[in-house]
Amino acid sequence: MDIKYINSFINGFLNVTEMMGISGLQRTGLSKKAKLRTDNDINIIIGLVGDIRGNVVLAMHEATACKIASTMMGGMPVEKFDAMPRSALSELANMMAGNSASQLEGLGVKTNITPPTLIHGQKMISLISQVETIVVTFNGNEGQIEINIATED
């Protein structure tokens, strides 16, 4: 996978989180996904079709997801991961993918995105796109967030 594509996703994510008031995010890791099991109980997947084809997954713990949803809603307390935070997090992933797709288009790479699907569960195992997955980790005031990028190009 070309590194410039990964940068488009990183920039897309940082642009959108900043816009939503989620500040202080630091990139803390960039690695290949080494295992199928994930400790994150919230995963939001968006598919990509076009010049690059694949899937991008935003993954985090439920507590982090609640804090992000709270920040997105102006600090309103979010104690339970119900319909409201589900919707907020899906919107965040949708905006991130849209922003990233615009950045990719700027590089001459045309991509369409699917709507987001949020998967909530315990002891999860995942296989994304059947290809090698790059994991970019961020840490911020709300907790740790991972972007899993698995594209064929």
Partner: peptide
């Protein structure tokens, strides 16, 4: 179509806003 992805786990639910 996108490539397929698979999720397996316990108490798993899926949402499409």
């Amino acid at each position: 179509l996108t490539p397929p992805s698979v999720f397996a786990g316990e108490d798993m639910s899926l949402f499409n806003v």
